[in-house]
Design a binder for these strands. Structure first.
Length: 508
RNA sequence: CGGAGCGUAGCGCAGCCUGGUAGCGCAUCUGCUUUGGGAGCAGAGGGUCGCGUGUUCAAAUCACGCCGCUCCGACCA
């Protein structure tokens, strides 16, 4: 059987790279760890951005933009924050180049008095603005968001999943009370959960991160965790309750209604281009990418079967009219995105390109289709019947009437498939360490899901010790899911009474 | 930064051990044929064999150094 990709999912890391490349999503750049996002990959990001932006605004936030350079002294203000990010910071030290000894280099005479760091996140520079903008309880809550690029100097980059520069949105809010800020943190976590599931068709588990996995400077961190097809967890979004940590470090205060001065409670939350990696590893198959229709830059692609013959004109005319009619339809609250591929390459080649890119519906129109008013199409979510590619033929009108429903069905189908994988691979009932070792035994290649175990939420040194034991098995605590039972088994690690269930797994 | 592996055409690889000046498949270009679907035939273009130094009459091949990539650790949205 001939697949559209050179490798299949049994070699998951190679397969992932093949999809990214062959689906025209992105490529590596001359700068180590930074990527070039190609039009098809960027198109997916634009869809993600547009829909998430709408949801962020619908929850009362306004967009703004802060500089990518942050004075070094700003980042130093919050102790944990510095410690967390210091190791991966890009630093700007000069503002001019000069040719010295025939070599172009930073001009020593143009050294910055205070180095600038390239933002790894913007809490400190936005906090600085908050401290000036917030005077009164009447200014609160302040609900901001920005779409930006950030830089974290990572050791081991991987396209979309972990790149030195990446794109994201970061929400930053300030509130009068802790309760209000906590509510905001949870609200945005829920926005992410629903977005991931509805739009990306990527089921996730929302929950709270253990102490050792918190954002540097946060009081609490919540995440949504998705399960990739190799069983590993992908942290797909985070939402942080920062308490008054940053407010105290940056003097973000307001006068309350009785005239007293109080520190604000702040939050921050973000999702990044990593989501695209999540989509690839959730939905991709051995023929390449499968895009959920809601984020596919082109939802229905029409490939005319042109043969350099007179009837080509009729085929093209039929296709153009079809695309025009498709474009009148609305799906997921937006105009249907239909595209006619007239590129002068072999039709078969076009078909496979769209298969690899994951266009949800690929239509092939030949002279006979055009003449008889018929539409022949493939569903990318169910491309093959056994080994053979499955083509479906329908009268044009029937297809047009059913296309919106069909796209919705594909979206739902992809979700259901991923949801079954997630639910089917979280194992409960393991109560001792031997059970953990047993579950995760074997090599890296064999699929393992996650364990859901009870624990007593140890902290400090005790938690560090647990972390070390887990690390030996390449495991981490992903999060403590929001929905918890009423009663708990004894703690798997300490034997103490359990207070919470957590997810354990391998992660990206 | 530590351990392992790998850098030869856009992609996937052979050649390296046993030095003689570069090859295969796919892709690309041209022509002819074909045409309900990843076509056939013929021809063509494309490579300072990661970079540098050395050994040699001669280096993709041997030696040394460097760089980059991938996987595994530390880090991580």
């Amino acid at each position: 059987m001939q697949r559209a990709l050179p490798v299949d999912r049994s070699r998951f890391a190679d397969w992932y790279q093949a999809v990214v490349r062959d689906a025209d999503m992105a490529e590596t750049s001359p700068v180590r760890g930074a990527m070039v996002i190609k039009p098809w990959g960027w198109g997916v990001w634009e869809q993600i951005q547009a829909e998430l932006d709408r949801r962020i605004k619908a929850t009362g936030h306004e967009n703004c933009y802060f500089p990518m350079f942050i004075p070094l002294s700003f980042i130093a203000r919050e102790a944990e924050h510095v410690e967390g990010f210091a190791k991966e910071m890009a630093v700007v030290t000069h503002h001019r180049l000069k040719t010295i000894d025939g070599k172009l280099q930073p001009d020593p005479a143009a050294k910055l008095e205070e180095p600038l760091i390239v933002r790894p996140t913007s809490e400190t520079i936005i906090g600085d603005a908050f401290s000036r903008w917030i005077k009164s309880h009447r200014d609160l809550p302040m609900l901001l968001n920005q779409w930006a690029n950030v830089v974290r100097w990572e050791m081991r980059p991987r396209l979309f999943l972990r790149t030195t520069e990446f794109l994201w949105q970061e929400g930053h809010t300030a509130h009068a009370g802790a309760e209000d800020a906590m509510e905001e943190t949870r609200r945005m976590l829920e926005v992410y959960r629903v977005f991931a599931e509805e739009v990306l068709a990527m089921p996730v588990i929302a929950g709270e991160k253990p102490e050792n996995e918190r954002f540097p400077g946060a009081v609490n961190t919540w995440s949504i965790e998705a399960m990739m097809q190799d069983g590993k967890a992908l942290q797909a979004g985070t939402s942080h309750f920062l308490g008054t940590h940053f407010a105290e470090a940056q003097n973000i205060r307001f006068q309350d209604d009785s005239g007293g001065m109080e520190f604000c409670n702040t939050t921050s939350w973000g999702v990044s281009t990593r989501l695209i990696g999540g989509v690839i590893m959730t939905h991709g198959d051995d023929d390449g990418l499968r895009l959920p229709p809601a984020i596919a830059p082109r939802q229905v692609v029409v490939v005319p079967m042109l043969r350099d013959k007179p009837e080509d004109a009729d085929v093209l005319k039929f296709c153009e009219a079809l695309v025009a009619d498709l474009s009148k339809e609305h799906v997921f609250g937006q105009q249907l995105r239909a595209f006619l591929d007239t590129k002068k390459i072999k039709s078969a080649e076009k078909r496979w390109n769209w298969v690899r890119r994951g266009a949800p519906i690929i239509i092939e129109i030949g002279p006979r289709d055009a003449a008889s008013g018929q539409v022949t199409y493939m569903r990318r979510d169910a491309l093959r019947d056994g080994d053979k590619v499955k083509s479906i033929a329908k009268p044009r009108q029937d297809f047009l009437e059913g296309v919106v429903q069909l796209l919705a069905e594909i979206q739902a189908g992809l979700y259901a498939e991923a949801k079954a994988r997630l639910d089917g691979n979280i194992k409960s009932g393991v109560t001792d360490w031997a059970g953990v070792e047993d579950y995760f035994a074997g090599d890296e290649e064999t699929f393992k899901g996650w364990l859901r175990v009870s624990w007593s939420r140890p902290a400090g040194a005790e938690l560090d010790a647990i972390d070390t034991r887990l690390k030996a098995l390449k495991l981490t605590i992903r999060n403590a899911p929001l929905d918890q039972p009423r009663e708990f088994a004894p703690c798997l690690f300490t034997g103490m009474p359990g207070v919470e269930e957590i997810l354990i797994g391998r992660a990206y």
